[in-house]
């Protein structure tokens, strides 16, 4: 028999926070993936909500492309508030 498909697991640790990737596991279907994720990743109150996504549906950027992908953001200091010089008298801005 073939392995059950692999699922990526995302957990929201507290109401108001975003779901975060915590790992992966095998399960026959989405229901079982959620049950297994509950057992494997939330045994100590680590979560209030679980997302499961079949690993084959994750599209990732190529690490070899990281230079051209992220280079354009590197020299744009004017996107940060600290780039702008204001007199000390201006409070709360």
């Amino acid at each position: 028999m073939k392995n059950w498909p692999l699922w990526e697991i995302f957990i929201r640790s507290k109401a108001g926070l975003n779901h975060k990737h915590v790992g992966s596991l095998h399960a026959a279907d989405e229901e079982m993936a959620i049950q297994n994720a509950r057992d494997v990743y939330t045994r100590r109150n680590e979560g209030v909500s679980i997302w499961v996504v079949k690993s084959e549906f994750i599209v990732a950027s190529d690490p070899d492309d990281s230079d051209p992908l992220y280079e354009p953001a590197k020299d744009k200091v004017y996107r940060h508030p600290t780039f702008y010089e204001l007199p000390d008298e201006v409070k709360h801005m």
């Binding site: 028999m1 073939k2 059950w4 026959a28 279907d29 079982m32």
Partner: peptide
């Protein structure tokens, strides 16, 4: 395992 896969 087989039954779960067949059900899925």
């Amino acid at each position: 395992r087989d039954a779960a896969a067949a059900y899925a």
